[in-house]
């Protein structure tokens, strides 16, 4: 054919796929989410072998391969183990809406737990006001607004009266 050596336009076909699904939380996660939604408290499970308190609760301790069947209530206060000041308008994939940057986002170990949980932090995006080791508390939505997922947490908030360690 006589199309040789001609520069061809590079054809691109845009597509969108929307995938609906129904997710079943399972027995242990269901109890965790129900406690969070109905009673505003965090529960975990304690491994009978290594005594590690795991949140969210799960039926098997991955390290020991034994059934977790001791339920424990956790504090709503904890310690910051890592954080970031996010400058990107990341989209919440469950709502399709972006979180307005800059915002602080962190990983907190609730007292009594060996696990961490990640969420927004209600503090100015200023390195003098947020640090690893800072004491935090969870702020929940009102009971009637809670639906039983991590969006029931509005954010973490620093406990008052803390000074940045030098």
């Amino acid at each position: 054919m006589n199309q040789k050596n001609t520069v061809t336009e590079q054809i691109c076909v845009p597509m969108t796929v929307d995938v609906p699904y129904r997710f079943a939380a399972g027995k242990y996660m269901a109890r965790f989410l129900t406690e969070l939604r109905d009673n505003g408290r965090f529960v975990g499970v304690k491994c009978p072998s290594c005594n590690r308190v795991q949140m969210p609760p799960r039926v098997v301790c991955a390290a020991c391969h034994v059934k977790n069947d001791e339920w424990v209530e956790l504090s709503s206060e904890g310690t910051m183990v890592g954080f970031t000041i996010m400058y990107l308008p990341l989209t919440d994939p469950t709502t399709g809406k972006p979180h307005e940057p800059p915002f602080v986002y962190g990983s907190v170990r609730l007292d009594g737990s060996d696990s961490t949980v990640e969420h927004m932090v209600n503090v100015e995006p200023d390195l003098d006001k947020i640090w690893v080791g800072m004491r935090m508390k969870v702020v929940l939505r009102d009971r009637e607004e809670r639906i039983g997922d991590l969006s029931d947490i509005i954010h973490f908030e620093p406990l008052p009266g803390q000074k940045r360690p030098q």
């Binding site: 997710f23 989410l33 969210p56 996010m86 990341l90 986002y105 990640e118 690893v132 997922d149």
Partner: peptide
């Protein structure tokens, strides 16, 4: 986002960059 648990992690939009950022603050502090 499909990697994260639908109820426990998916609404928390940290993405890979947020993950490594927290590794960074944790590493510097430690």
């Amino acid at each position: 986002s499909g990697v994260a648990h639908p109820l426990y992690g998916r609404s928390m939009a940290g993405a890979a960059v947020g993950y490594f950022a927290m590794m960074g603050t944790s590493y510097m502090a430690a």
